[in-house]
Amino acid sequence: MKGMTIIVKKTTQLICGIVFLYGVYVIIHGHLTPGGGFAGGVIVAGSFILLILAFGSDFMHLTREETGSTITENFGVLVALIIALTGMALGTKVFFLNWLPKGKVGELISAGVIPLYNIFVGIEVAASILTIFLALLIFKEELTR
């Protein structure tokens, strides 16, 4: 697909990094402030979608990105499942056990394994939304060829 005008491209260059960083912030601070893996992941995916829409991309790049995002998505949900299973590996019979030390409430590194779930669910959600968007784009490109 083709890109947009130079005004859109310049604005995207200025905004895109900030949007990405805000998504990462929402994911990492998910256990302290409102937000979390699901909201932050969609914001991160939004920054990628903004880039693709503004600058355009050709067919080869799109298929390569789709392969990468599919692998990333499956990796994210698999690691979240493995973290949930680690409690069982430690000898207890509890799925989703919060076995790491809790720390002080309100600090960035606290709450045991909850930030890890947040991070990997965020990766998974971002890659999923991006994969759906790329699949739609690739479908359109294949139809026009």
Binding site: G30, H31, L32, T33, P34, G36, N98, K102, G103, V105, G106, S110, A111, G112, I114, N118
Partner: peptide, 8 residues
């Protein structure tokens, strides 16, 4: 839970 955000 050790999490300050109750929803999470």
């Amino acid at each position: 839970t050790g999490s300050a955000n109750l929803v999470t």
